[in-house]
Amino acid sequence: MTYFFQLVVSGIVVGSIYALAAIGFVLIYKSSRVLNLAHGQLIAAGAYITYTLTVYCHIPIYLSFVLSMILMFFLAMSVERIFLRRLIGEPIISVIMVTIGLMSIIDGVIYLTPYGSENLSFPSFLPSQPIVFQGIYISYTQVAGVVITFLLIGVFSWFFRKSTVGISMRAVSDDQMASMSIGISVPRVFGLAWATAGLTAAAAGGILGNIVGLNFDTLHAFGIIVFPVVILGGLDSLPGAVAAGIIMGLIQQFASGYLDGNWGLSGTASLLPYIVLLVILLFKPHGLFGTHEIERV
C-alpha cells in the first residue's frame, strides 16, 4: 500500500501545480472568452522575477514570492491595457492571434536576458531532508507548493463568490451587455482578469521553479502541458481546474507506477491524460465542470 499512497501523494503535488497554472487560463477565459496562449511565458516571467528579487536584490524568498505576484499583477494588467483593450469587440481569433504574438515577444525578451539560456535553481530555504510518514516521502518544498496552491485557490473561490469585484467579473462572464447596462465597466473587468491571471502565473512559476529548477524551455512549455487540464476541467470553471489538475496528476503517477514498463507499455504517463481527456469530452463536451450554454434562436 505504501507504493500506492506514494503515488497518490505525488499525484496530488503535481496536480495542485497543474491546477494553479490552469487557474490563470480560466480567469481570462471566464471573463473575456479569450484563450491566452502566452500563459506559459507569464509563468516563466513570474519565476524569473522571483529569482531576481531573491538572488540579486537579496530579498527573502517568501517576500520575493509575494512581490513577484504583485509585479506580475501590474505587468499582466499593462499587457491587457496595451495589446488587448483595443481588441474588445473584435473576433476572438484576432485576440488569440495577439496572444500568440505576445508569446513570441515575451520569449524574445527573456532570450535577451541571461535567463533565456541558463539553468538555475532557487537558493534552499527549506530543510532538504524529506518528511517521511509511514514510508511515504514528501519534500518540504512540495508541501509548501501544495499549501500555497490550495491557499490561493481558496482565496480566489472566496473572491469570486463574495467580493463585489469578483461578482462583477462573473457577471461579465455571463453577459457583457447586461453587465454594462447595470454599470459594470467591462474593460476594467478584462484588465482585472488579466492582472489576476498574472498573479497566479507568478505563484505557479515560483512554485514550479522551486520544484524543478529554472530552465526556460521547461517553464514556458508548462503552459502547453497544462492545457489538457484546462479543457478537462471546463474552460470557465475554477473548481473544474482544481479537480482536473488533481485527476491529471494522479493519472500520470498511476500510469507511470503501474502501466509503464509492464506488458511492453511505455510512455503511458504522457499519453493517458490525453486519452482520458478525449473520452470525457465525448460525454461532456464542455469539460467536467464547464458551463453548458444553450442558445435560443
Binding site: F254, S256, G257
Partner: peptide
C-alpha cells in the same frame, strides 16, 4: 516533460 517522476 515531467514535473515529477516518482511513479517511474
Amino acid at each position: 516533460q515531467d514535473l515529477d517522476v516518482t511513479g517511474m
